[in-house]
């Protein structure tokens, strides 16, 4: 009995240390996501300057009190442009994530639950899509159609689907054979009802994972397409495009390149951390033990 307080405190310390290690990162990441979302919603109110105002007289200003991150080669305020960039930088991935999650869930649940021919057909279509490299197709399609942000988004959506359908389908298949789903079948519920009300809640964690992973990839991929000049039109305030346009002027104002890079990395990492946390909170729901 003598050693009991010792073991107790040792245990308590271990938990505390583990918690302290996790929480600040989550707080920082969540704040980043919230700030980015807030900026997206109340833009252009927070931008100190007009992001598209060209003024050759103030080209290549260094960061200072007037231009917080300096100006680019055309005298546009870098900070304002980063703020304006949330529109494409966040809205695009958001649309992508929502679209992918909805479509992938629909296909995966129907194919996984019904099985048989439906599942086999879906599987073959996915196989075909897998064989095609998405970035190359994106470049070609955008090149042929003359580009545009929506086209880029659509290509990324189509090619992001297969892996997510696979992921969700495997989760669905495992659960569709479990007694609680079979019990719903023997009770006499319709297939639709079983899919929506019985199956879907148990794969909630996977939906969260798909959503946030697609969002993160979306940020990076859309920026990459913009960087290659295939997303937004030239001159638009977009993080990827800013990096592409300003990298030639690294020595005049490095912040014009570093600023949007930090924005991409920060938002992507933060979204991932937050997504991870939400996933872990839902994770146990579909499990049976």
């Amino acid at each position: 009995m003598a050693d009991r307080p010792v073991t107790l405190s040792r245990h308590t310390w271990r938990t505390l240390r583990a918690r302290r290690r996790q929480t600040p990162l989550l707080v920082v990441a969540a704040s980043c996501v919230l700030v980015a979302a807030a900026v997206l919603m109340i833009f252009p109110g927070v931008a100190p300057h007009d992001p598209d105002l060209i003024d050759g007289a103030v080209a290549f200003q260094s960061p200072g009190s007037q231009y917080w991150l300096g100006t680019d080669n055309l005298g546009r305020d870098v900070f304002s442009r980063i703020v304006a960039g949330t529109r494409t930088g966040l809205l695009g991935p958001l649309i992508l994530a929502i679209g992918t999650t909805l479509l992938a869930t629909l296909v995966a649940v129907v194919a996984g639950y019904l099985g048989g021919h439906v599942d086999a057909l879906t599987g073959r279509v996915i196989d075909v899509l897998y064989a095609v490299p998405p970035m190359v197709v994106a470049i070609v399609v955008v090149g042929i159609t003359g580009g545009g942000w929506w086209i880029a988004l659509a290509v990324l959506l189509v090619f992001g689907l297969p892996i997510n359908i696979r992921l969700l389908r495997s989760a669905v298949i495992v659960r569709a054979r479990l007694p609680y789903i079979e019990a719903a079948r023997t009770s006499g519920f319709s297939g639709t009802r079983i899919m929506v009300f019985h199956l879907l809640p148990t794969i909630a964690a996977f939906l969260v994972a798909v959503f946030f992973l697609t969002f993160t990839y979306g940020i990076v991929d859309l920026s990459a397409l913009s960087f290659l000049g295939l997303g937004v039109p030239p001159g638009a305030s977009d993080w990827g495009r800013m990096i592409a346009e300003n990298r030639a002027y690294l020595f005049q104002n490095a912040w014009a390149t570093i600023g949007p890079t930090i924005a991409v990395v920060l938002v992507a990492v933060s979204a991932n951390v937050v997504g991870d946390w939400i996933y872990s909170r839902y994770e146990s729901r579909g499990r049976t033990r």
Binding site: Y180, I181, E182, G286
Partner: peptide, 12 residues
């Protein structure tokens, strides 16, 4: 059904 651990929907 047989398996008590999976006979009930864990989300309900």
């Amino acid at each position: 059904f047989q398996d008590p651990s999976s006979t009930l929907n864990p989300a309900r």
